[in-house]
Write a protein that binds this DNA or RNA. Structure first.
Length: 872
RNA sequence: GGGCUCUUAGCUCAGCUGGUUCAGAGCACCUGCCUUACAAGCAGGGGGUCGGGGGUUCGAAUCCCUCAGGGCCCACCA
């Protein structure tokens, strides 16, 4: 027999396999259909599925599945990102465990390990997505380092270089001493750090006096090239032009003046260290100061430091403070909080460092990307992100795209021995170019050397929506022409600038069109303490464990129950439990229908209930469709949840359910299964597995039929009047149950009901339903008040006569409370209506509504008063 | 430091362009039920002066100002 609880495991595997075998998720350009495309935000190739992916990909799957059911040519492209720095770090760590040092390997050897690693772990996350039910076209799976995509990146680099947008520059960059590479501005996170502000005395060369500066970086004093004061600072006028001696190494440096210096900060004297501070660098340029770089690429002091050579910068900081103290140059130390840049990848403190790097000019490129978001050609959801987006785009700076790494797209720049740069696809082509452009025919491949660096990961991901369709290399191929621009992008706000903005830029540059119409920004999944879920904190449950425990449908719905766009999702296993319970509820409703014996001899007695649910379904469906257009996926799910649980299960099924072991009439049965069919189709995008299982079982299905391709329901007319009548019905039933509860009367005990109403017809129509839902023995209509417990619904009065069981006091209290509330309410309405300005100013039918309220309240008060009189 | 945003029941959130039968939902909680679809369930219930203050208005959770406290983004005071 069918299991009492829904058990997802075998069902999910069975259907996923069925879907894949029948290629329902595969897509080809089809001129007869409207394309609907989503490209997945490619997870890191060696990554493992985490809760953020779960949320993100569930939303994408919902959108894709709905589009597919709506008859669109739905195409969800999956893939992975080589994640240059992240993967390289992992491989380096892996090698270290094996006792291998990256520096002992050749580039090719190292890349060999990277590929080995990629092949070993590369498929995992995509396999995990299948568990979730993701309906990707897996045949289209792409990887940012596969040949076509690799070449696309190289082509784009060359193109932008030739357009003059890419240049090589000696600049201050963000240096990550741990990864020993530069990182872009966006990869630097500022964190507030408790530091020590050290006050140091520099003696004047003249021997006559001294100057005291404040610094957080005493270990860099050996790289000082000046001391700077504000020219308006009266305290220091006499110093300008003099020289000061750097302590410990006794080198003389000039004292200069610049308005950049804040007089209020520290002592108002600044040590200028151009190699190790961005501002100082600018200052140095302005005043023609030399540059002394005393840090090696791993963050240790080099021989330029003269002392403490080889020490790590932080160790050196402590040691030099001691040395300075011993030398008598330490004036004082203050605790000081300031923001320090950290590497997003390694969390190492970023070192401003001068070096030769490749840059992409952003100003021209970002213009259309800014405009088209601001005018909603591309829509950000929620729109509040427009502001931050604009701010970033308006202040965008050139993008440092070179990385001192090996795993990635190697920069296609070649150098001749004299330093001449040639950008070309290959060494051979570089040679040819050199020979022709510079008439250097004697040149051989031996004479040219390729740039050792690779490109920033995002320099490949920004092409993703184009390159997955090979639109860079073959701009007019059928795929890219059909699928591009894509429709929706679902991603985390954290990478709005890293990725989204740059894809938009690339889209306009290389396709002349936006890459996607809508950007749905999900929130961050957090734990109960509000911390972001992360591997390092160990506060994230393993999604695969959760799927095994609760089923994929349970997680999908659980995560979405409370997840409006842009809002963080405070994860609680309770949510997933609720999702699982929802599946179980559906399962048991299904089980109910399976147990019925169907009789075609019985009269069709449930037409009213059927009409009502039809109306309710249409009403909710209309609402759901509207919510989808606004990307309010969470609200849409909640509407479906209520429709199924409250309206279908709690109300409709209870109304039409035959007595135990009694048959059901054929008409009701057919209607009910039809509802089930529609409900499953409506719910399918949210919960693909259980809906397929049930949908396949409630009717004979043809070979290879699937709910995945069944039409999404379309709303019919909603009978509002009927819905309103049923609202009254539910209130009456609810009131009777309430009475039972408070009087301790079993739901099994049949009760007689008397109704005193002006609209008898309405109740007559609902008669049998009230009787069934409230378990009544009899319903009578009365003109006067009668004996019994009474209650009010709207302006109608109800009596249940159970001899000797009336608690007069309690009933009076209830009535008095209701009277008080209604009178208060009436008062406010009357007050409002007697206010001339209200009657004059209120627009539309608001005044009319108020008058109706007044009439209703007055009628109700009369009824209550009568009831009170009756009670004596 | 600049910009954006948020503060509604114990928790997570809805409440659009202002109109008291809108103060809501889910979860949690309390009470009663193992009522043959479902205890992963059923029936019922309590709970918030909508962060504080001021203003606009006939009328404000909904608009404006201000204060307090969160969050996010951007930012080179050593």
């Amino acid at each position: 027999m069918i299991s009492k609880t829904y058990s997802p495991q075998e069902i999910e595997d069975k259907w996923y396999q069925y879907w894949i075998e029948n290629r329902y998720f595969n897509s080809q350009p089809n001129p007869d259909k409207v394309p609907y495309t989503i490209v997945i935000p490619p997870p890191n190739v060696t990554g493992v599925l985490h809760m953020g992916h779960m949320l993100n990909n569930t939303i994408q799957d919902i959108l894709v599945r709905k589009a597919r059911m709506e008859g669109k040519e739905a195409c969800w492209v999956a893939g992975t990102d080589h994640a240059s720095i992240a993967t390289e770090a992992k491989v380096v760590a892996m090698l270290k465990e094996r006792g291998i040092n990256k520096r002992d390997l050749s580039r090719d050897e190292f890349l060999g390990y990277c590929w080995e690693w990629t092949h070993k772990y590369g498929g995992i996350i995509l396999q995990q997505l299948r568990k979730l039910g993701a309906s990707c076209d897996w045949d289209r799976t792409r990887f940012t380092m596969e040949p076509n995509l690799y070449d696309s990146v190289i082509d784009v680099f060359i193109d932008l270089y030739e357009k003059g947008d890419i240049y090589r520059g000696h600049r201050m960059v963000n240096w990550d001493p741990q990864a020993r590479t530069t990182v872009s501005d966006e990869e630097v996170m500022m964190k507030e750090v408790q530091q020590k502000l050290v006050y140091l005395r520099y003696d004047l060369e003249s021997g006559d006096g001294s100057v005291t500066i404040a610094t957080t970086r005493p270990e860099t004093i050996m790289a000082d090239v000046a001391i700077c004061v504000n020219p308006n600072d009266v305290r220091y006028q006499h110093l300008i032009g003099q020289k000061a001696i750097i302590p410990l190494i006794n080198r003389a440096i000039p004292i200069i003046a610049d308005e950049y210096v804040e007089m209020e900060f520290g002592t108002g004297c600044l040590k200028v260290t151009p190699a190790h501070d961005t501002n100082d660098y600018e200052l140095g340029k302005k005043h023609n100061l030399p540059i002394i770089d005393l840090l090696a690429e791993d963050g240790t002091l080099n021989e330029k430091a003269q002392i403490l050579v080889g020490e790590d910068r932080f160790v050196a900081r402590k040691k030099i403070t001691k040395l300075l103290e011993a030398a008598g140059n330490l004036v004082k130390i203050e605790e000081y909080k300031s923001n320090v840049g950290h590497s997003e990848r390694t969390n190492a403190v970023i070192e401003p460092r001068l070096s030769e790097q490749w840059f992409l000019k952003m100003k021209r490129l970002s213009k259309p990307a800014l405009e088209n978001v601001m005018d909603d050609t591309i829509q950000l959801i929620p729109p509040k992100f427009k502001n931050t987006y604009r701010h970033w785009m308006e202040n965008v700076r050139d993008w440092n795209i070179s990385r001192q790494l090996w795993w990635g797209h190697r920069i296609p720049a070649y150098y001749l021995n004299d330093g001449t740069i040639i950008v070309a696809k290959s060494k051979r082509e570089a040679l040819r170019k050199a020979q022709h452009e510079y008439q250097l025919f004697a040149l051989t491949e031996e004479d040219i050397r390729q740039d050792e660096d690779v490109l920033d990961t995002w320099f490949s991901s920004w092409l993703w929506p184009i390159s997955v369709f090979n639109g860079i290399k073959e701009p007019n191929n059928a795929d890219v022409n059909y699928y591009y621009p894509t429709n929706d992008l679902v991603t985390a706000p954290e990478i709005l600038f890293f990725w989204v903005a740059r894809m938009i830029i690339a889209g306009y540059e290389y396709r002349g069109a936006y890459p996607f119409k809508n950007v749905y920004l999900t929130g961050i999944v957090r734990d109960k303490l509000g911390r972001k879920m992360s591997k390092s904190l160990g506060n994230s449950p393993d999604p695969i464990d959760l799927i095994e425990k609760y089923g994929a449908d349970g997680i999908r719905t659980g995560m979405l129950f409370s997840s409006p766009a842009g809002n963080d999702l405070p994860y609680d296993e309770k949510l997933v439990e609720q999702g699982r319970n929802f599946c179980n509820k559906i399962w048991n409703a299904f089980r109910l229908t399976q147990g019925w014996e169907v009789s075609s001899d019985l009269p069709a007695i449930n037409q009213l209930a059927i009409d009502w649910f039809e109306a309710k379904f249409n009403q909710t469906l209309t609402e759901v469709l509207d919510l989808f257009t606004k990307f309010r996926i969470s609200d849409a799910l909640n509407a479906v949840y209520k429709l199924i649980w409250d309206d279908f299960c709690a109300q409709y099924l209870e109304m039409i359910k035959p007595e135990y072991q009694q048959p059901i009439d054929a008409a009701t049965y057919a209607a009910t299964l039809d509802f089930f069919d529609k409900l499953m189709r409506l719910a399918h995008p949210f919960m693909p597995f259980i809906t397929e299982e049930i949908w396949q079982n409630i009717a004979e299905r043809a070979e290879k039929e699937t709910i995945c391709l069944a039409p999404f329901p379309q709303p019919g007319a909603t009978n509002l009047e009927l819905l309103a009548d049923f609202e009254v019905l539910f209130e009456v039933v609810s009131a009777i149950r309430n009475l039972r509860n408070s009087k301790g009367i079993s739901p099994k005990t049949e009760l007689p009901l008397a109704i005193r109403t002006d609209s008898e017809a309405r109740y007559l129509r609902l008669d049998s339903l009230v009787r069934k839902l409230a378990n009544l023995s009899d319903i009578t209509y009365v003109k006067e008040q009668v004996e019994g417990m009474s209650f009010l619904v709207r302006s109608d009065e109800f009596f249940i006569n159970l001899a000797g069981d009336i608690d007069v006091e309690a009933e009076r209290e209830t009535l008095l409370a209701e009277l008080k509330y209604t009178e208060g309410f009436l008062d406010s309405v009357v007050k409002k209506l007697s206010n001339e300005r209200f009657v004059q100013n209120a627009k539309g039918d608001i005044v009319e509504k108020e008058r109706q309220k007044q009439a209703d309240a007055e009628a109700k008060i009369v009824t209550i008063k009568e009831a009170l009189v009756r009670l004596g």
